[in-house]
Each structure stands twice: as C-alpha cells, then as structure tokens.
Design a protein around this nucleic acid. Sequence first.
DNA 1: ATATATTTTAAGGTTAACCATAAAAATTCA
DNA 2: TGAATTTTTATGGTTAACCTTAAAATATAT
Lengths: 252, 252
Amino acid sequence: MNNQQAIKEKPAIKDKPVIKAKQVTNRGEEDYIKAIYKLSDEAEGDRVTNHQLVTYFAHTAQTVNEMVRKLEKKKILVYQPYKGSLLTALGKDEAVRLIRAHRIWETFLTEKLGYAWEEVHEEAEMLEHLTSSKLADKLYAFLGAPTVCPHGNYIPVLSDMNRDDLDTCGRLKLSKAKKGKQYCLKGVVDDKALLVYLNGLAIYIDLCFTIIERDLISDIVTLAYGGRNTSLSGAVAQKLFVCEVYDAEDNT
Amino acid sequence: MNNQQAIKEKPAIKDKPVIKAKQVTNRGEEDYIKAIYKLSDEAEGDRVTNHQLVTYFAHTAQTVNEMVRKLEKKKILVYQPYKGSLLTALGKDEAVRLIRAHRIWETFLTEKLGYAWEEVHEEAEMLEHLTSSKLADKLYAFLGAPTVCPHGNYIPVLSDMNRDDLDTCGRLKLSKAKKGKQYCLKGVVDDKALLVYLNGLAIYIDLCFTIIERDLISDIVTLAYGGRNTSLSGAVAQKLFVCEVYDAEDNT
DNA sequence: ATATATTTTAAGGTTAACCATAAAAATTCA
DNA sequence: TGAATTTTTATGGTTAACCTTAAAATATAT
C-alpha cells in the first residue's frame, strides 16, 4: 500500500497540453446584477425587492434570497430584508460593463452581420458574459465608437459608468409627447415582440412623425408619418423614446 | 394545509418579463468532443484512450470515465473499455462545428480587431461554445469566406465536415522537409508559447525560406530567409506546416 | 392592535461537473 | 501462465445554481 503510494507519486509530468477551463459561467450572478440594475430604474426608491426578482426570473423566493445574500457577501450590493437591494459602486460598474458589452454586440450584429434588430438580443445576452474589457474596447473602436445600439439606447463609455438612467437620458417617452408636435424616434425598449410589431408598422429609429391625436381616456396616441396614420396604445408608447423636432419654418 | 395548497395554486400569472436562461454551458461536454477529435488525429488507430484524456485535461480517470460514458449515451461516441473512444458521425459533426466556429472567431479577432495571433486562442475558445450556425455563417461571410485561420489552419465548411485531417491536409510538416528545397510556411499549431517564439524569429504565415541544413543527429533544421539563418528543433519543426515552392528558373 | 398577508429563511433535495480512495478487471510482460 | 501494471469503476464527497416545503419574522390593513 505504502509502496503503491510511492509509485503513484511520480507520474512524470510530460509537457502535454493540460487544458484547464477557467472562469466558467458567472452567468447566474451576472444576470442578477443586470436585473437589479434594470429594475432599479423603474422601481420607486431605487431599491429592488426580492419579489421583483422572483417575478423577473421566475425563480423561487428561496433562490432569489440565496443569490442576493451571495452578492451581498461579494460587496456587489447592500440588502435590507423587506426593503430590497441596492447596487454598490462595484455592482453598478459591473452592470454597466455588461450593458455596454451587450449593446456593442447588438450593434456589431446588425451593422456588420446584417441581423435584424429583433434578432440580436438573445445572441448579445450570451456573448456579453464572456466579453473582456479588451474585447469590448476593440469591438467598439471597430464599430466607429457608436453612441447607440440598434434600439437607440446609449452605449455607456467609461466616463459615464455611474450615470443612473442609461435608457431615457435626454429623451422623452412617447407617452409624454404632446399633440400637434413633431418628434423623432430615438430609442425603443429591447423587447422582441415589440420590435416585430414595430417592423409591421414601418416604425424604426430616426423616423420622424407628428402626433395628430392623443386620447387620454383610451390612452392612445396617433402618429402621422410616411403618408399613414398609426395608433399606438399607452403600453407601447411607454416603450418608445423620442426627441422633439423643430421645423425650419417653426422658429423656436 | 389543504387550504394553503388551494391558495398557493393561483399566483396570478402577470405578463412580466420572466427571463429564463437557456442551453447554459455545454462547455464541459463540448470540450471533450473537441479533445477526442483532436487527439484522434495524432493517436494510432484513431481511438482515443481515457488515459490520453486524463493527461490532456488533467482530470481524474473517474471524471474522464463519467464524461465518456455520458457522451456514449448521447450517441456522440462509441467507447470500448481498455480500447478507447471513437466519435460517431454526430460527434464529428459537432467537433467540426466547434473547430469551424473557433477558427472563424480567430480570423475575426485578428483581421478585424487587430489581435495578435497568439492572443486569439483563449477568446475563441470561449466564444465558440455559444456560436449558432447562423452566427458562424454570417461571420464567415462577413470575413469574405476565408479558407484558413490566422495560424494557417483550414476553416472547415459543410462540404468537408467529415474530412479527417483538418490540420495537415495538403501540407507537409516542416520536420519532413528536405535540405536545399524552398518552402512556404502555410500553417502552425495554435499554441501560445510557440506563437510568441515565432514572433521573435520573424516567422509568420506565407514566409518563404530555404532549408540550408538538416541535421538528423541533433534533429535540427536550419532555414534561410530575409537575410538570416534560423535553427529550429525537431519539436518546433513538427508544429509547422509548409508547402514546397518552385522557383521560376527551377523547372519542375 | 390584532389579524391577515407577505416576505424571509431554515432544512433538505436535485443535477452537472468535478474530486479522492480503493476495489475489481483486463492487459502486458517475463 | 502467473505476476506486475494499468485501466475501469463503485462509492462517496464537493460546489453552484436551482428546487420544495414549511416555519419564522415582518408589514399592512381594519
């Protein structure tokens, strides 16, 4: 027995490959970080409750609790039972890093590979998790330092890493737009069903239109563009971001 | 108790996001498939023994056995105890799909993003596992249907999916080259240390040189190119693939 | 201020991909 | 052919990310 040990101890280390897998799949944790970042924009008080995560991921309360506690230990967030989670600076950096990678990939896939805007989310969702800063930066430069992704959402750069609202900044929700005025579509929420719906209506980024009707009872906005009128529900209008357009003849 | 059940059964399904992670990390299995494919090129009789996998991955015999049995159940290989594993057509297709994705990514990273040839392996190693056929095909087209990766190795296309020797086909190992003849470097093994070494010697794909010495005792080849002479060990020469070059004046 | 509802968490389970130890089986070699 | 060596596999363990059930703690609404 002792003998066998002795023999086993010297299995001549040949200079063979010896492949080791590395940082395999932070996927779970990273998805939680992104979710908390995203949900905190919409939620009141910035704190994201476990309940929100339960419905977002369709995980059990137990699972959400475990993940949140784990991220808390890693200093990625602070958690108050019954109150919710708040990302630390570390957590926010991580979230922004992921969102940046996500949007860079989306831009690459549409601009360079000819994907449609409703096809890129899933691919980017996977690729973002294995995108080093080096890769992100090189891709970004290759794309010509774009400011927005195919859905019109800002691609954060290091200087605005901690800006809170990456999605609406400088723009207006269409649901807040005013009758009679002219707007230009600058961003949409990255939601496949919505994107396909907009395709059918020939609505895309940079489209300009006039609001010809805004019914507050039915919560419907009606736009005029390209010789047609289209009515959108409040639910849709809330997912579109616009900038006001000033006509040449319309001074101020 | 029964009561509680009844209440719990109707947690009104809201139309909230409900994000589900999918096909998470076949990484382990896929690495085994690739390893078996690669090792079967070098090994005698095509079969890859568990022992080869043990040294390749630095996993235990038990782990290798489990993985092999699992892949066997999935019809990816046939395994004979004490003999080794042989990929099925399904397994080979899978391996080639991965190698194709790997080499396409390597090409993208060097050609489009300016990576050095010794930097691309690790990135490609991760990206290949989440590359759909659609993505691979679009990338491939974007790159202009390249035939080889930055290391000069063939990028398989569907038509040669089952070709056995993707790495040496049509080419010669430098270690088999003859004194006095002229050759062109067409491929090198994708091994970081080797690539960095070659950088230092200004040796790269498509470099042409003449073999001015070939010492069989010391197993050293000496090349002349760009006004310099360089001696390479047999270990290195075995990892370089060349084609013979015929001078204009040297008929036949 | 309590009763009800909701949120948290303890306890224990599952699967995948790894590990170690050691017994059983097959191969190889003398 | 038997002994030595190698290969395989049974048993049992670990961690991460999920699960269920049910108890404990807190919040809310009357």
